[in-house]
């Protein structure tokens, strides 16, 4: 698996998958739907799938002396590495906003989503949607990525819309503040469990699908 991961990072990955980590910095933008940053990180990962198709990555991998299905697992691990890096960056910026910049004018009066544990929970939900709807469905063919990407776009934009709406509803204003932090961290833990479970299940299904494919 280590060698496959090296292959993912040195041959398969598109440079934009790394560069788009910079969209994690959107967590600092005030009065902006900052969850879109998670979408852009996924868009960078999409480039690796597109690049893989153009460079015969699937065929190259299938001809290596490996269990073919492990190529799928390596791709999912790569997704988790990039998403993990983005999450850590966003978590750091969220801590910065909550601890040192909480009183700063643009953040104090922010009608859009603030960076807090609930924001980080939504980030994991968007990443999970990418892993299930895009990566999972991609391995139905290991070639067509149009429909999976459209499915991800729709689902992730709905998630962004929901995240931006919920804290305006009565009783849910705390979702956009630094209040009730234990509950916020509980929601973050729930999202982390959801991310992990969704990714593992999507990977398992993608492995099965890929094994059955005629390349």
């Amino acid at each position: 698996m280590k060698n496959l991961l090296i292959k993912e990072m040195r041959l398969s990955a598109h440079v934009l998958s790394y560069l788009f980590l910079a969209f994690s910095l959107m967590a600092l933008i005030p009065r902006y739907p900052i969850l879109v940053g998670a979408f852009f990180v996924c868009f960078g990962l999409f480039q690796t799938f597109q690049n893989g198709r153009e460079t015969n990555d699937v065929l190259y991998s299938a001809l290596l002396p490996i269990d073919k299905k492990d190529a799928v697992t390596a791709r999912f691990i790569f997704l988790c590495v990039i998403q993990g890096a983005a999450f850590l960056l966003m978590a750091g910026l969220t801590a910065l906003r909550m601890v040192f910049l909480a009183g700063a004018a643009p953040y104090a009066d922010n009608p859009m989503m603030n960076a807090n544990p609930v924001f980080l929970a939504w980030v994991l939900v968007v990443f999970a949607l990418f892993n299930v709807l895009f990566a999972g469905l991609f391995y139905q063919t290991a070639y067509n990525f149009g429909k999976p990407f459209v499915a991800f776009i729709i689902a992730s934009l709905l998630a962004v819309g929901l995240a931006e709406t919920l804290h305006h509803l009565p009783g849910l204003a705390f979702l956009n503040t630094s209040e009730r932090l234990p509950l916020q961290f509980a929601l973050l833990a729930l999202a982390a469990a959801f991310y992990w479970l969704a990714t593992v299940l999507a990977c398992r299904k993608a492995r099965r699908r890929f094994a059955m494919l005629d390349l």
């Binding site: 041959l11 460079t55 015969n56 990555d57 065929l59 190259y60």
Partner: peptide, 8 residues
């Protein structure tokens, strides 16, 4: 006709 990673 198959070549892998043509730009690497």
């Amino acid at each position: 006709a198959v070549d892998y990673y043509p730009r690497k």
